[in-house]
């Protein structure tokens, strides 16, 4: 009995220690986001003497937070929808039409997954910069479609393979077109996979920095990671203000996580295992 209690105590001590190791950076930046610069420099670990939101107001304006949030939402949602629509259709096409070329296309998609973005970015910027196809968040969505297509198609492909063809036959007899069969019969069955793909892509695109930093040049097109980067660069030495900016940048994704935590955990695991 006694050893059981000790075990339990040890378990919670260890968990608590690890918990603190994982969250203390967040706690420290939150504490300091309420302080003025002098008190941050004096002691970064002390609690603020007065809670002042002035850092937040200033950071909110300096980061152009509303504009950055709007850009991030447009890019993330738009790109994810493009990826879902086109990769599910492509995967369906590759599974249901057994053309010889389709096996080659599938192989090409799978092989392309190993190419790192860093190995493409120099020619990518050269070509599309020259063609004037940078600096627009709408063009950026199509780049995300290109970079995100192969993984999403691969995930959908694995699932559609196992959907029996008989399900579609009834719809065909009723005179449905190929597109109708896909959208009315197949796409609804794909719902769990769609939510996996959606979560993987939202987390990737929302946080992505390198691609948008190369594509989006003007200040009004900046997404949250880009505006955080330029904001922090400008106010590095005004610690309280910089910390408030970081907290603001984190809030949207934390809200997203709190609402959808179960789905996110499941989506991340399934996306990795596939």
């Amino acid at each position: 009995m006694k050893s059981k209690k000790i075990k339990s105590l040890l378990y919670y001590l260890l968990s608590l220690f690890l918990f603190l190791a994982f969250v203390f950076p967040f706690i420290i930046i939150i504490i300091n986001s309420f302080k003025d610069n002098l008190s941050v420099v004096r002691n970064p670990l002390a609690l603020p003497e007065v809670f002042s939101f002035s850092n937040y107001i200033q950071a909110f304006n300096a980061m152009n937070f509303i504009s950055a949030l709007k850009n991030s939402l447009i890019v993330t949602i738009g790109s994810s929808l493009l990826i879902i629509v086109f990769s599910s259709m492509l995967a369906y096409f590759l599974v249901r039409w057994k053309w010889k070329v389709n096996r080659f296309i599938f192989l090409l998609l799978v092989m392309s997954m190993i190419i790192p973005f860093q190995s493409l970015m120099i020619p990518f910027v050269s070509i599309y910069g020259r063609l004037g196809l940078l600096d627009s968040k709408y063009v950026l969505m199509f780049y995300y479609l290109g970079f995100g297509l192969s993984l999403a198609t691969f995930i959908y492909h694995g699932f559609i393979k196992n959907i029996p063809f008989e399900l579609e036959e009834a719809a065909i007899i009723d005179g449905a077109s190929r597109l109708q069969v896909f959208w009315k019969v197949i796409f609804p069955i794909l719902k769990p996979i769609t939510s996996t793909v959606l979560i993987l892509d939202v987390l990737w695109i929302w946080n992505d920095f390198l691609l948008p930093s190369l594509v989006l040049v003007s200040a009004e097109e900046r997404t949250i990671p880009l505006s955080t980067f330029s904001f922090f660069g400008t106010y590095t030495n005004n610690y309280g203000l910089a910390m408030a900016g970081l907290v603001l940048a984190i809030i949207p994704i934390i809200i997203f996580f709190l609402i959808l935590q179960k789905h996110i955990v499941r989506g991340v695991v399934e996306g990795a295992i596939k």
Binding site: F22, P225, I253
Partner: peptide, 12 residues
């Protein structure tokens, strides 16, 4: 809570 850092981008 162990998973939380994963949600946030490397820049931040």
């Amino acid at each position: 809570s162990f998973f939380t850092p994963n949600l946030i981008g490397g820049i931040i």
